[in-house]
Design a protein around this nucleic acid. Structure first.
Lengths: 225, 225
DNA sequence: CGTCCGCATGAGAGAGCTGTTAGAGGTCTG
DNA sequence: CAGACCTCTAACAGCTCTCTCATGCGGACG
């Protein structure tokens, strides 16, 4: 089911959209502010975003940039402003379409279908979130929230892959060492400590207090999604 | 250079678009009827179509269907009709955007950028930008910004194709070697280094600091669009 | 309270990988 | 048949990665 995130602070518009979208078998999420929108989108990545530019907390264009930092889901902007400058700014920030209020629901649905059709042509990649970083296993790429790319060495990738493939599970040092370095390296725990530190330094927001790459003293390490 | 096909029968609109698009470094083709549009598009496939629905010979929606039969280039519809039915019909036929006349040129250009950005993500465009060069995979042709053509040897093409067909993805040396040289050449990494250098020398603006043909030490190479 | 153990962090040496150049040999073309 | 072009190899300087060692920190335990 296609998941649509509706970002708007006007209750009647939200309700009208909710009713219409649910009747068309869309899964609907709602956020009343830019902050809430980014939060909800991070927790349950939407397939499409309908975004009102007139938000109470901060500028809609900032929301677009915040979303575009890590997702390529189409963004359809709603706005009362007909000024060309607003449209250009929103579209260049990463929006896919711009509809001025008042709008017909049929037109909006058609525009939704158009941008969804286009975005479905691109295939999606499995991405794991580790703190402030998105880890794309298939492309072997780590992107920070700011859009900046981080480079991992082969050993770092190997270790991270083993951890991520067993989310939430405790991995003993012996397991990790034999998986990454092969049999015969069970005693190179200093090595493991070093590379775990490297990963935390590169991926964790606060390397001294890891939130995802956890140590279980005396036991091993655990990746917490 | 991005090739835009303008389909309209009103001379003043065509002229205004031509001037504005050429000033923005688009390559502009013009067709005054639906028949001419399909013919021109077949001869020189455009990267984007701007289509007026009010054509003399046959319905604009038919032109959309005719194009969609064989190309996925974005279609931006211009129309004087504001009726929601027309919009829905055109969008569902395969158009990517619908702009009603009169329109601002800045808004139109922004919408063009938006749909082009989206279609480039899908990698359906056979033309890829690498630094100061345009790579046309279907025509096996590389053109510099100045219009000057660059010659690539067969091996260089083969390697470039493999890289460009997996944009953003990391390609290991083994992958590249077996793709380009065939199985059994996994140890010819010196070869790969040589040809990667050739490509950078020919395509990158600053071969010593590549912006698109990137090296990930120990991992492989990555084409960054 | 002192000691011990496991873990995190930093600096540094060595190995391995990469970019670049020059040149030999093979193939195509006129 | 000669020249041009392409492919591939070898060599070396510079850089990156891997691994080790040393130090500091914090909790567990006697």
């Amino acid at each position: 089911m296609t998941r649509v995130l509706v970002v708007d602070d006007e209750p009647q518009i939200v309700r009208a959209l909710q009713i219409n979208l649910k009747a068309r078998r869309y899964e609907v999420q709602v956020a009343g502010s830019g902050t809430a929108a980014l939060k909800v989108a991070a927790q349950h990545p939407p397939d499409l975003v309908i975004l009102d530019l007139g938000l109470p907390d901060f500028d809609g264009v900032e929301v677009i940039r915040g979303l575009r930092g890590w997702t390529e889901a189409p963004i359809l902007v709603l706005s009362g402003r007909t000024d060309a400058t607003d449209k250009v700014e929103a579209l260049d920030a990463g929006a896919d379409d711009y509809v001025t209020k008042p709008f017909g629901i049929d037109e909006l649905l058609a525009r939704m279908r158009a941008v969804l059709r286009r975005s479905n042509l691109a295939q999606d990649a499995p991405v794991v979130i580790v703190g402030g970083a998105q880890v794309d296993l298939s492309a072997k790429r780590v992107t920070l929230d700011g859009g900046e790319d981080i480079r991992l060495t082969p050993t770092e990738w190997h270790l991270l892959e083993v951890l991520v493939r067993h989310p939430g599970k405790l991995m003993s040092q012996r397991q990790l060492l034999t998986e990454v370095w092969g049999p015969g390296y069970e005693s190179a725990s200093g090595n493991l400590r070093f590379y775990m530190g490297q990963l935390r330094r590169k991926l964790e927001a606060d390397p001294a207090r890891p939130a995802h790459l956890l140590t279980e003293p005396g036991m091993g390490y655990r990746f917490e999604p």
